[in-house]
Amino acid sequence: MNVFRLAGDVSHLVAIIILLLKIWRSKSCAGISGKSQVLFALVFTTRYLDLFTVFISVYNTVMKVVFLALSYATVYLIYMRFRNSYNSENDTFRVEFLLVPVIGLSFLENYAFTPLEILWTFSIFLEAVAIMPQLFMITKTGEAESITTHYLFFLGLYRALYIANWVWRYHTESFYDLIAIVSGVVQTIFFCDFFYLYFTRVLRGRGKMTLP
């Protein structure tokens, strides 16, 4: 554990809580991609299967359970409780275009050809692209509410901080995990365009982010 890793985890948690509270308080999930949230729930589910096989630390177990619970709560709010406000007509990203290559790649490129390892690899690859339906939705509608953009900012910040964590671990422990690093860099790159818009429009202008 180092400061980048801890800050990354906190940032990830903040992102998820911002989204959940936004939906809960406004009683609306307008502008939120349910597809991205289902993909994130799938990411946590397939990655944290090791909850049943190994014990790493209390911190690790608690965070995993919290992430799982919050991601399922978010999906529940979008598709059940506040489904009337869900903009399914704008959430039209074809997730099979993500799932098929990600499943294929996790079978081809993994650390061991065992179910748990393949599912772990699948979760790492899927996380890298899971935000695409949400970004696609914003591009399609041309705008995003400021709270949605704060959510995306913390979600992008989380992976960027993890990269700093991996650089730190490489130098201090001579340790690196190529699958995690390559996927993490790809994931962060997807946020770069958004980060630019966030700093130039949302933080200066306050209010909605509109695309040109």
């Binding site: 890793r5 990830h12 190994v54 790493i56 690790n60 992430f67 964590n165 995990d177």
Partner: peptide, 10 residues
């Protein structure tokens, strides 16, 4: 052979 050291990450 790779060990499982990133698996302690979330």
């Amino acid at each position: 052979k790779k060990d499982n050291k990133t698996k302690d990450e979330l």
